[in-house]
Write a protein that binds this DNA or RNA. Structure first.
Length: 349
DNA sequence: AACACGGGGTT
DNA sequence: AACCCAGTGTT
């Protein structure tokens, strides 16, 4: 039995019942694939349901405000996925009359659709002969065939893609592709893979050589940068029994593009109350000196994959010049980073 | 070729 | 703390 037949047989007996497995609708498969980029299935499932409910068809997504799309995406991370998702929905509706491209070549032109995603959609929806190479596939192929070329080197990317094409199933591309990924996610896991009950143990080079735990090989380490964020939370208590505050939308490059946050003073190092008293006007203008207090005595350290944000929330009470001022009851409508959402949940406005 | 881009789960 | 997740786009 060939490698691909073993994978396919295993899959047909072990596949999970996932929400997007009951359809070949390119819209739904595309949505699931974008959500699942660098994201675990368990984390993505509730988002998939919410998007399908809010936007049953690609036309619904295309006519939505970006604000609403980002709000639904809040908490998933890599927000360029949401912006590109929205842009591609518009492309499909406006340029292709609402019909998704039916080929790898057509699909890869969509924003946010790269080699992996174009291969996944074209093979799953149309059984096109394209090989998917995601993190699971790198792991399974490197172990079974004993390949120690670094998976994130240029040579590795090329040679694993070539190998993936060579071992593709002859006919059932659709199920084989999902099968090899599922096999990596469930059976041939990163740590403590279940080799003792593996249907592919016979023929697995890494198992034979005792190198399972060393594969796949990955080079380079992400250097983590430290940043110091001082959020200035303005509060103006009005007689109308309403409290005003202010949010701003992040623009330009960097993290959290197009999401909202409180006025931010970023510094090179930790600063204290005296510094805030002097510098708050760089960020936010008050009509008279505000009453300032620190919300969190210890840093809130928000960890991203490549930076740690040492964060202090400063509460500034007093009347301020209200461009973009909003009542606190409206805060929930804005798409915000998890760091800000956690603060809003904890702070007693 | 290297880096930026989130947040959460697992060990 | 380190690694990884159904990767893509930019520099």
């Amino acid at each position: 039995m060939s490698f691909s037949d073993k994978i396919l047989t295993w899959y047909l007996e072990n596949k999970r019942d996932l929400p997007w497995r009951d359809t070949l609708d390119p819209y739904k498969i595309w949505l699931s694939e974008i959500i699942l980029q660098q994201t675990r299935v368990a984390q993505g499932i509730p988002y998939y349901h919410r998007f399908i409910e809010a936007f049953p068809k690609v036309e619904d997504l295309a006519i939505a405000n970006e604000e609403k799309v980002l709000k639904l995406w809040q908490g998933l991370g890599y927000y360029s996925r949401a912006r590109n998702l929205h842009a591609s929905a518009k492309m499909v509706v406006e340029e292709f009359n609402g019909t998704f491209p039916k080929t790898y070549t057509g699909l890869i032109k969509l924003k946010g659709v790269g080699d992996y995603t174009a291969s996944a959609i074209s093979s799953i929806c149309f059984n096109e002969r394209q090989a998917v190479v995601d993190g699971n596939v790198y792991r399974v192929l490197s172990r079974y065939f004993g390949v120690n070329i670094p998976i994130n080197s240029t040579e590795g990317i090329k040679s694993f893609k070539k190998l993936a094409i060579e071992v593709l199933h002859p006919t059932n591309i659709r199920d084989y592709n999902q099968g090899i990924m599922e096999f990596g996610a469930v059976q041939c896991t990163p740590q403590s893979p279940n080799c003792s009950s593996c249907p592919l143990a016979g023929g697995c080079v890494a198992l034979e050589m005792g190198t399972v735990k060393d594969l796949p090989v990955k080079i380079g380490k992400t250097k983590i940068k430290k940043r110091f964020f001082n959020y200035l939370v303005p509060l103006e208590h009005r007689k109308s029994d309403e409290t005003l505050t202010q949010l701003r939308q992040r623009k330009g490059k960097g993290i959290w593009q197009n999401l909202w946050e409180f006025p931010l003073l970023e510094t090179e190092r930790e600063i204290g109350l005296e510094d805030i008293e002097i510098r708050h006007s760089e960020v936010l203008k008050f009509k008279r000196p505000p009453e300032i207090s620190l919300f969190n005595s210890d840093f809130i350290v928000h960890k991203l994959s490549h930076q740690h944000l040492y964060t202090q929330f400063w509460i500034l009470e007093g009347p301020f010049y209200r461009t973009n001022a909003i009542p606190i009851s409206n805060l929930e409508n804005y798409p915000v980073p998890v760091l800000i959402a956690e603060f809003m949940k904890t702070f007693k406005f």
